[in-house]
Write a protein that binds this DNA or RNA. Structure first.
Length: 738
DNA sequence: CGGAACTTGCTTTTT
DNA sequence: GCAAGTTCCG
């Protein structure tokens, strides 16, 4: 076993550390996962620790998956340690022992949307003014309370406002319990409560899990911190790995002090620093360091690398987001022509909304890509609808799901009826489901409504019966058909219905895959996966090479040879909401650091002069981070406010464009409007047959024909250079009026 | 009660 | 610019 082979001295030190707390400060690209994996193998092989005594906790499913994979690769197929996210770990504990807290073990896990529905009911019950207490705000406040480890009774009523929040929180919590449901925050908080109020339960887990590892420790919030402490027990065989420079989840309650003060919390801790970076070129590493080094709340340190200096970091400013996207595609093509591998390419953006333009450009340029995150599959309307049927079958007390489907598709059970049932449920403090039965069989409702509700109850009983004999995928197919949901989608206009039908087919396929996979095959287990994994893994796409699109947040832990960071503009990145708050600004800076340090060989920092946000044109200054990178590391750095020359079509008509003033609104010459207006927004005034245009590549030409509208608008242009026509998507052509 | 037409408010980031 | 929520009408 070459366990210690190819490890540098500090890595070895971390791997070989025995009992007692261990803090590994692992810089970007310093072989962090490697250390965890090797350490686990070391414990098992050299220390004789049984695998089932080891628990490794991560933040994301992706990280857990990767770690599991690498452990299996190292240890083979035998028994493996439990590697899972905080939330899945807690869900597992709660499924076993939540009875002690008065919930049923088949509790549902609510996502944000579900919680919002519930909160709305609470808000109504408490007669709150929705203007003063927007549901969104209530939700985030409660989430924050939970992250801090506070129950409704821990909320200090030091102002009327706080007192109201506490009341909402209490109401919300009661309702969740009545639904036999928990939210994400509860998974952690209830587990802590469980352990603190029932020491005998904790004892059970302490006996079993004797070695605890926590990845990305800098991202733990106070509840997670408490959980880790509880699980460490007196043994304190606790190994935490993290990097304060990569703490990017402050908004989710993560407290960077957890890692900065770990040494205080565990006085006899062993600290190991991993400072050699194996990933990036010197230029990239240096550039990133200059960005993050400005932060005050960090442990002073500087990574080093034996890697070559490498290429300069490339900085470019484009006229608009479409040109930005096109540059990305062109550079990807260049990279491929140099023999690069598409799976080594990533595009990072600050907000999900930015992905669309890139996607469109990639489709147009035929660059295969896949998106990580984004609109989650299981969050789609139609998927949630069908899942709601299944959730009710699994847990009839689930009010939110039941109310969702009772009249979806329409079965003539209107608002009045639902309201009456809900009122009855509230009066009695019983689940909506029980009140609904009363409606179907008792004197609660007028005859017409009663009949319809009874029919629905019947329908659900039918599914329940099916659920006992059919595999999940077939049950689901039956629900989709028999409920009339499918017929309804069919009846929609083609463009609306088709996507949704395909999504439902994908849902059934996902279930079939799940059924043939290993492990549990039940409905409850599937639902848990859906709640916690929250996205379909598209690994099955045959590892077909494709570029990766994702937010900066989901980029953490990954690496690529070629990285683009787009939208490097003030108000976007750093995000507008961070501008006023120094702490949040530090987090943006770390986010920038995380993004840059993902790049192994080539790094592009891009921004645009004008961008559409909320459908409105905005002009923002370049991200401040650009100016923090020494000019000698940057290609384009000395001209940092200059437009990208070779792709700035109007540069010939106005050389003043090349100078620094472009970002100042007043100075913006109107000539620049041309190229922007040419980008079709709603197909309005911009173009007409016979119009003379200029194309970056093909030069001057004349529009012969216009086809389609909006995003799909195409033009046929007769180009002089070609001596013939060319069909172009207006959106991507970047045509300029000639 | 159901569906169309209109209005709104929204965007950080994820389990 | 868009999706979701609300209002209004048949």
């Amino acid at each position: 076993m070459k366990l210690l082979h190819n490890l540098n001295p500090p890595q070895k030190e971390a791997v070989q550390h025995g009992e007692g707390p261990l803090l590994v400060l692992a810089g970007a690209g310093s072989g962090k996962t490697r250390v965890i994996v090797h350490r686990i193998a070391y414990l098992i092989h050299e220390r004789g620790v049984p695998p089932w005594q080891i628990l490794a906790v991560t933040f994301t499913n992706k990280a857990a998956g990767e770690m599991r994979e690498r452990i299996r690769h190292m240890l083979g197929d035998g028994e493996t340690p439990l590697v899972s996210t905080f939330h899945s770990t807690c869900a597992r504990f709660l499924r076993n022992d939540i009875k002690s807290l008065g919930y049923d073990p088949n509790f549902a896990i609510y996502d944000d949307k579900d919680c919002e529905r519930l909160l709305k009911d609470c808000s109504a019950e408490l007669n709150l003014d929705e203007k003063r207490y927007p549901v969104k705000l209530l939700g985030s406040s409660i989430d924050e309370f939970k992250n801090q480890g506070m129950t409704p009774f821990d909320v200090p009523a030091d102002s009327p406002y706080q007192a109201t929040l506490a009341r909402v929180y209490r109401c919300y919590q009661e309702r969740l319990k009545r639904c036999n449901a928990v939210d994400f925050g509860d998974l952690l908080l209830l587990t802590v409560q469980l352990f603190e109020e029932h020491p005998e339960v904790l004892e059970k887990y302490l006996k079993r899990y004797r070695w605890i590892m926590v990845d990305e420790y800098q991202d733990t919030n106070p509840v997670q911190y408490r959980l880790v402490q509880l699980l460490a027990g007196e043994r304190q065989n606790l190994c935490v790995v993290g990097d304060d420079d990569q703490s990017i989840y402050g908004w989710r309650g993560a407290d960077i002090r957890n890692i900065l003060e770990f040494e205080k919390d565990f006085p006899n801790v062993k600290v190991v620093k991993l400072e050699q970076n194996y990933r990036s070129t010197k230029n990239i590493l240096d550039g990133a360091w200059h960005v993050v080094q400005k932060n005050r709340g960090r442990k002073p340190k500087r990574l080093w690398t034996d890697n070559p200096e490498g290429e300069s970091i490339v900085y470019r400013t484009l006229p608009n987001e479409w040109e930005e996207a096109r540059l990305v595609c062109r550079e990807i093509e260049r990279f491929l022509s140099e023999g690069g591998d598409l799976s080594e390419v990533a595009v990072f953006y600050r907000t999900n909304a930015q992905s669309r333009v890139i996607e469109d450009a990639m489709v147009a340029a035929s660059v295969p890509y896949h998106m990580v995150g984004g609109v989650r599959f299981y969050a789609r309307l139609e998927v949630k609808d069908i899942l709601a049927y299944l959730k009710v079958l699994d847990n009839p007390a689930d009010d939110v799901s039941l109310k969702r489907i009772i009249n979806t598709p329409p079965r003539g059970i209107g608002n009045t009826t639902v309201q009456r049932i809900a009122e009855f449920a509230n009066e009695k403090g019983i689940p909506f489901h029980d009140a609904m039965l009363e409606g179907a069989y008792g004197p609660l409702l007028p005859a017409a409504a009663k009949g319809k509700v009874a029919a629905f109850v019947n329908e659900m009983e039918g599914y329940k019966a099916l659920s006992e004999k059919l595999p999940l995928s077939e049950l689901t197919a039956a629900v989709i058909n028999d409920s009339g949901y499918y017929a309804r989608l069919k009846s929609l206009p083609r463009d609306e219905g088709q996507d949704r039908i395909e999504n439902l087919q994908e849902l059934v396929t996902a279930m079939q895959v799940y059924e043939t996979g290993p492990g549990e095959k039940g409905l409850a287990d599937f639902l848990e996966q859906v709640a916690l994994v929250s996205d379909l893994e598209h690994e099955g796409d045959g590892k077909k090479a494709s570029a990766t699109l994702m937010t900066l947040h989901s980029a953490k832990g990954l690496e690529f040879q070629l990285v683009f960071m787009i939208g490097m503009e003030e108000k976007l990145f750093p995000h507008a909401r961070a501008l006023e708050n120094p702490e949040q600004m530090e987090e943006e800076r770390r986010l920038c650091y995380v993004g840059m340090t993902r790049a192994k060989k080539r790094l592009f920092l891009l921004n645009v002069r004008r961008r559409h946000i909320f459908g409105q044109e905005q002009m923002n200054a370049p991200a401040r981070f650009i100016a923090d990178i020494p000019k000698e590391l940057l290609d384009g750095g000395d001209l940092w406010q200059r437009s990208e020359p070779s792709h700035n079509f109007s540069s010939s008509s106005s050389s003043s464009h090349n100078l620094a003033s472009l970002f100042e609104d007043e100075m913006e010459p109107e000539v620049a409007d041309n190229e922007v207006r040419m980008v079709p927004e709603d197909g309005e005034d911009g173009i007409w047959v016979g119009m003379k245009v200029r194309h970056a590549q093909f030069g001057p030409g004349t529009i012969r024909k216009i086809e389609g509208e909006g995003d799909n608008q195409k033009v046929i242009v007769w180009f002089n250079s070609l001596g013939g026509p060319k069909k172009l998507l207006v959106r991507f052509a970047g045509l300029e009026r000639a």
